[in-house]
């Protein structure tokens, strides 16, 4: 089954739409999907032109395509557990919250909290991601726990905050404090970043560009070769964050 959702023109296009019901399994068994537009609950058809093609007997046979002005749509793919979502443009905050399986492909940019507390599955963002990519909610002690988030462009501040499992790959630059409070999993930063892995207690972070404002509380632990994007690089290896009795591994290109 292929579901195409094209946004209708909206009188107030900057008002966010909260659409956690846009997940493949809902199109298999529900026909009363609702979304929130500001403080009003609306039917899916009020805000989208909906086209459904072909049959499906299980959620993994459902592909949802979002097109139009999608940059203010939040929470698409929340708790998704099968199937595929393709977003032709930008997407709003919290895309792929808590998803456990399936795939989300974003052709444009993703706003903050992409893949928040994700458990499994795969997210590919072909543009840039906002702050808190693959991080946790406020006060939450564990961020992303499984699956893969790959961002072809840059990511904002606090990327992979509280990362506890899974793999986060940012091919471009990251902002401030990527991998802060990290406790497990793997974070790969292809470009530059600032103050990586403050307060980390576990996991592995690799920075293939420059690590600016490198924190003084990481202990040097030799060097090793690592492969990234088909090439091998010599990486200086550190253990820390000592300020937090951390036992994480931070590697920075030599």
């Amino acid at each position: 089954m292929r579901v195409v959702l094209k946004t209708r023109p909206r009188e107030k296009p900057r008002i966010p739409i909260e659409a956690e019901e846009i997940i493949p399994q809902n199109f298999l068994r529900k026909d009363d999907i609702t979304v929130y537009y500001g403080n009003k609950e609306r039917s899916l058809e009020d805000l989208f032109f909906v086209t459904i093609e072909g049959p499906a007997v299980s959620p993994d046979q459902v592909e949802v395509v979002l097109t139009g002005e999608t940059g203010m749509i939040k929470r698409v793919g929340e708790y998704m557990n099968a199937g595929r979502i393709i977003i032709e443009g930008d997407i709003g905050m919290h895309c792929g919250n808590f998803m456990s399986a399936g795939e989300i492909v974003i052709r444009g940019n993703a706003d903050a909290w992409l893949g928040r507390e994700m458990r499994g599955g795969r997210i590919l963002c072909e543009g840039n991601a906002g702050h808190y990519c693959a991080a946790g909610y406020r006060g939450e002690k564990r961020g992303m726990r499984g699956g893969t988030v790959e961002v072809k462009g840059n990511a904002g501040d606090f990327t992979a905050e509280y990362l506890s499992g899974g793999e986060v790959i940012i091919h471009g630059n990251c902002g401030d404090l990527p991998g802060v409070e990290m406790r497990g999993g793997t974070l790969v930063v292809g470009g530059d970043c600032a103050r990586p892995c403050g307060n980390m207690t576990g996991g592995t972070c690799m920075v293939f560009g420059k690590a600016r404002q490198f924190l003084p509380t990481f202990r040097s632990n030799g060097s090793q070769e690592v492969e990234y994007a088909g090439k091998r690089y010599r990486m200086n290896t550190f253990r820390g964050d000592v300020a937090n009795r951390g036992k994480g591994t931070l590697m920075v290109r030599a």
């Binding site: 103050r195 307060n199 404002q213 003084p216 509380t217 964050d241 000592v242 300020a243 937090n244």
Partner: peptide
């Protein structure tokens, strides 16, 4: 942040 981390260490 770095100064605070250093003091903690």
């Amino acid at each position: 942040y770095a100064v605070l981390s250093a003091l903690r260490a």
